[in-house]
């Protein structure tokens, strides 16, 4: 390796570095300079002195995370939902992208694609209102137009824990599907027709083509999304878990995640030291998990590791 490195003709790469410059400058300004903000989690802030001159206070700001006696279920919720979302994310949109790719009618295809993207375009606040429009016990479509006329009874969804793991998973899939499908579709579109023609000549059926051509092409993207998901396993989509169940306390045992807890605990305090401590803790765990999972993948299948 060393011998090769010496031969590298740096002059040849000068244009490359010039082309890299604007992008790198952006990352330095937008991401690397502000990273000193991480130290806020370890400081007792004093705005008179300024952030960088505020004294350090060790892990004091992290204590509130353990002050609550009920972190167990909160961590369990966060991790479990993420695992389910990860598993579904590796299957559902991939299946949709493959099936979609098989449709030949061009206009219908465009229509489908636009329509399934609709949910992705709505903000969680609006999604929350829409879910409420369906589920409300007093005014919701399901209760008022289906359950009441048929059975004479209503269900108070916002007071019943048992429905929510399914509702939240459904809403998450429903909202994200349109986009993740597009993500995998762009990979499928890059596969040259030559591969399919060659396979056809060898007598491969379409299912075999899916199995031996499409899936291998999709694999790097799937693995990349999995690793990214793992890095966020202690984070959660605040809007999904806070807005959609309308912050209903009764549902907390199945809906409260770390982000929701931190928000509820700090909403009256304006304490950026504590909120920064929470996100540093989440990032630290995520960071470790990414390194570990990337190492494992490197062992099993070196080509698929992301770095």
């Amino acid at each position: 390796m060393k011998a090769r490195k010496k031969k590298v003709n740096f002059k040849r790469f000068i244009p490359a570095y010039i082309m890299l410059l604007p992008g790198l400058a952006y990352f330095v300004i937008n991401n690397y300079i502000p990273m000193y903000g991480i130290t806020i989690a370890f400081r007792k802030l004093d705005f008179k002195k300024g952030i960088l001159r505020s004294p350090f206070c060790g892990f004091d700001n992290f204590k509130f995370l353990f002050a609550s006696g009920n972190m167990g279920p909160i961590i369990r919720n966060t991790v479990l939902y993420n695992l389910v979302f990860l598993a579904l994310g590796a299957i559902v949109p991939v299946a949709f992208a493959i099936l979609f790719n098989e449709i030949r009618a061009k206009r219908v295809k465009k229509l489908y694609q636009t329509v399934v993207l609709l949910p992705y375009l709505m903000s969680m606040v609006i999604v929350s209102s829409l879910v409420y429009n369906f589920l409300s016990a007093d005014m919701g479509f399901i209760n008022k137009s289906i359950l009441e006329p048929l059975t004479g009874q209503t269900v108070s969804f916002y007071q019943e824990k048992k429905f929510w793991p399914f509702i939240l998973t459904f809403v998450h899939e429903w909202k994200g599907l349109g986009f993740s499908m597009v993500l995998y579709l762009s990979t499928l579109l890059s596969i040259s027709d030559d591969f399919y023609e060659a396979a056809k000549i060898d007598g491969a059926t379409r299912l075999q083509q899916i199995r031996y051509i499409m899936l291998p092409f999709l694999r790097p993207t799937i693995i990349m999304m999995l690793i990214l998901g793992i890095s966020k396993i202690f984070n959660s989509d605040f809007g999904l878990f806070y807005q959609v169940p309308k912050n209903s306390g009764v549902l907390y045992p199945v809906t409260q995640t770390i982000d929701v807890y931190v928000y509820n605990a700090l909403m009256n305090q304006n304490n950026i030291m504590m909120s920064s401590a929470a996100s540093v803790a989440q990032a630290a765990i995520g960071f470790t998990l990414v390194i570990v999972s990337n190492l494992i993948i490197k062992k099993i299948s070196p080509d698929d590791s992301i770095f």
Binding site: F64, A67, Q159, N247, S248, G249
Partner: peptide
């Protein structure tokens, strides 16, 4: 008492609305 009050605030979020509307 910041840490305790923080934790208590979170408990109130969980129970108050349901109890004070009779929903629980």
């Amino acid at each position: 008492m910041t840490n305790q009050i923080t934790a208590i605030d979170a408990v109130l979020q969980e129970y108050r609305a349901a109890l004070e509307t009779g929903s629980a």
